[in-house]
């Protein structure tokens, strides 16, 4: 594995993904904000949550990109469309299983069945994160496909 290439393009891909998701939020296509959702796991303060969540999101992006890189190394090739395909699978996993289990992991997220409590008041994402807007899955799919495409296009295989 080419560690330098992974660190660089994992970082770039995460920044682009974050930018696309923030763009869809700014354009009112969705209310999903992954850094905020991650940050509120640690603090209720809105401002600190955004900052902390961004850092956690960045590390997450790097870690996830490791899986992409492992796949490229296993296949012996890395192309933008292979990366995009992994990205779509990644997004599908996040939107289905990931969003379903999030209320169980998140200490401040309300549950769909029991409603909010004193400690759990954050709106849960629901299936495909549709609670955050009907266009949320499309934005997430696009962002993750671009994330994978960047890694696939620019990551240099260890033997390459």
């Amino acid at each position: 594995m080419s560690v330098g290439s992974w660190l660089l393009w994992g970082f770039v891909a995460t920044i682009v993904l974050t930018t696309i998701l923030a763009g869809t939020q700014g354009l009112r296509l969705t209310r999903m904000n992954l850094p905020y959702m991650l940050g509120t796991m640690f603090t209720p303060s809105r401002d600190r949550a955004k900052l902390l969540g961004f850092a956690v999101h960045l590390v997450n992006g790097w870690l996830f990109s490791l899986l992409y890189v492992a796949a490229f190394e296993a296949w012996g090739r890395a192309t933008w469309w292979l990366g995009a395909a992994i990205g779509v699978v990644h997004a599908a996993f996040v939107l289905t299983a990931g969003m379903r289990i999030l209320p169980g992991l998140h200490p401040r997220m309300a549950s769909e069945t029991h409603g909010p409590t004193v400690t759990r008041q954050l709106e849960p994402p629901g299936f495909l994160a549709l609670n955050y807007g009907v266009r949320t899955p499309l934005g997430a799919l696009a962002a993750h496909a671009v994330f994978g495409a960047i890694l696939g296009a620019f990551y240099r295989l260890a033997g390459g």
């Binding site: 939020q25 209310r31 904000n33 905020y36 309300a110 909010p116 409590t117 004193v118 954050l122 709106e123």
Partner: peptide, 15 residues
């Protein structure tokens, strides 16, 4: 009302 973030839903009653 939530326009930008996931909604915060305060519980009713004592809160």
């Amino acid at each position: 009302y939530a326009d930008e973030w996931p909604a915060i839903l305060p519980p009713l009653g004592a809160p």
